Amino acid sequence: MLRIMLFLATNAAVLVLVAIVFQIFGIEGILQENNVDLNLQALLILSAVIGFGGSFISLALSKFMAKRGMGVQVIEQPRNETERWLVDTVRRQAEAAGIGMPEVGIFNSGQPNAFATGWNRNAALVAVSTGLLRNMNADEVEAVLGHEVSHVANGDMVTMGLLQGVVNTFVIFLSRVIGHVVDRVVFKTERGYGPAYFITSIVAQIFLSILASMIVMWFSRRREFRADSGGASLAGRSRMIGALRALQRGSEPEDLPGEFAAFGISGSMGRGFRRLFLSHPPLEERIQALQAED
C-alpha cells in the first residue's frame, strides 16, 4: 500500500510540475492567443485516470489471465514428488522473503522459463514451464524459483504496473496537447476538431509510446539484476549462476506472451537499437553481476 501511495503522490507531483512548466514558459498563453480552448488541468486528470486505469485493471486480472492465457495448472494437491518439492521449495523461500505463500503452477512450454505475477506480494502466482523442469536440475530450478519469489518480495509486479500507469498518463496527455496545438495553431481550426487533430494525436501517441516503452524496459532490465541477487540469497549464488548458465546452454530464449514477458526468468536477446526494447539484460551480464557481488 505504501508503494502505491508513493507512486500516486509522485504522479500527482509530476502533473503539478507539468502545469507549472506550461505557465512559466507561457504555453497556456500561446494556446489562449490562438483560441485553443484546452483545459490542461482537466486533460491531466483524464489522462491519469485512463493511464492508471488500464494498468490497475491489467494488474488485478494478471493471475486470472496467466491461468487462462498461459494454461497454468495450479498445484492444489501435489500429485507426485516433483510437484510436492516445488510447493515445499516455494513455501520455504516465501517464508524467508517475508511474503505470503504464492500459488504454485506449471505451464506447458518447451522453453525453460518461469514467471511470477499477482496484484500484491501476498497474493501472487509463481509458475514454471515443463521445459524448465525437463532441462534443469533441482539446484537450478530452486534458484529460478528464488528469482521469481524475489520479484514478488520486491513488489516488482506492482511497481511495473504503476510505472506503466505514469508513462501512459503522459503519452495520452502530451499526444492530445500536440494534436490540439497543430489543429488550432497550424491549421487554424476554430470549432470542434479537424482531421489534423486526430492524425497528429495518433502519430504523436505512437512516437511517445515508443519512447515510453524504452523507459519501462530500461527499468525492467534493472530489476532483473535485483531479482537475481535475491535468488542468490534464497538459493545460493552458485545455484543462481548455474541456472543462468543453464539458460545459456539452451536455444535462444523467447519472450513469454504479452505482459508476462517482463516477469520471466529470461527473455529474447538483441543488439544495437533492439536492445533498448528488451525486458531482460543479456545472461552474461547477469552472471557477471552475480560474480562481482561480495
Rank of each mutant, 00 (worst) to 15 (best):
T117A: 13
K63G: 13
T82Y: 04
P102E: 02
D88K: 07
L132C: 02
R134A: 10
P78F: 11
E95A: 09
S62C: 02
I106F: 06
A127M: 03
Q77T: 13
E83P: 00
N120P: 06
A124L: 08
D88V: 12
G71I: 08
T82P: 01
G110Q: 15
P112F: 08
A60N: 11
A138K: 10
E103K: 09
E81H: 04
I57G: 07
I99V: 10
G69Y: 01
G105I: 05
L125G: 07
E81D: 13
N137I: 11
N113G: 04
T82D: 05
T89G: 01
F56A: 14
L133S: 04
F107N: 02
L59N: 04
T89M: 02
L59P: 09
S109I: 03
A97K: 12
L86D: 04
V87E: 00
R68K: 15
A124I: 10
T82L: 15
A123Q: 13
S109T: 12
Q77A: 14
S62L: 05
S129F: 07
E81K: 05
V72R: 05
I50P: 07
R92P: 01
S47K: 03
E95I: 01
I57H: 02
F107W: 07
T82M: 10
V72N: 02
T82E: 14
V128R: 11
A97Q: 02
S47R: 01
V74Q: 06
G118A: 08
G69W: 00
P112E: 00
G100R: 07
E103G: 02
G51M: 13
Q73F: 08
R92H: 08
L59M: 14
Q73A: 15
R79D: 13
G105Q: 03
T117E: 01
S109G: 06
L46C: 08
S47C: 07
R134K: 13
Q77L: 13
W85N: 04
T89F: 04
V49C: 06
Q111F: 15
R79W: 02
E140H: 00
T117C: 14
K63E: 09
G51P: 03
V72M: 04
N108M: 09
V128N: 11
A48E: 07
A138Y: 03
A114E: 05
Q77S: 12
Q111L: 08
F107S: 08
A60V: 15
F64N: 06
S55N: 02
S55Q: 02
F52D: 06
N108D: 15
T130L: 00
R68N: 09
M65T: 13
L133Y: 03
V128P: 08
A66V: 11
T117H: 00
L132W: 07
T117Q: 03
V49E: 05
V128D: 01
L125H: 06
F107R: 00
R68E: 12
N122A: 14
M136A: 09
S62D: 07
V74R: 05
F107M: 07
V128L: 03
N137R: 10
W119V: 14
V126F: 03
G69F: 01
R68T: 12
N113Y: 08
K63A: 01
E95P: 07
L61T: 15
G100Y: 06
R68V: 11
N113T: 14
N135V: 09
G110E: 15
A96I: 10
N80Y: 06
W119N: 15
Q77E: 14
G105L: 02
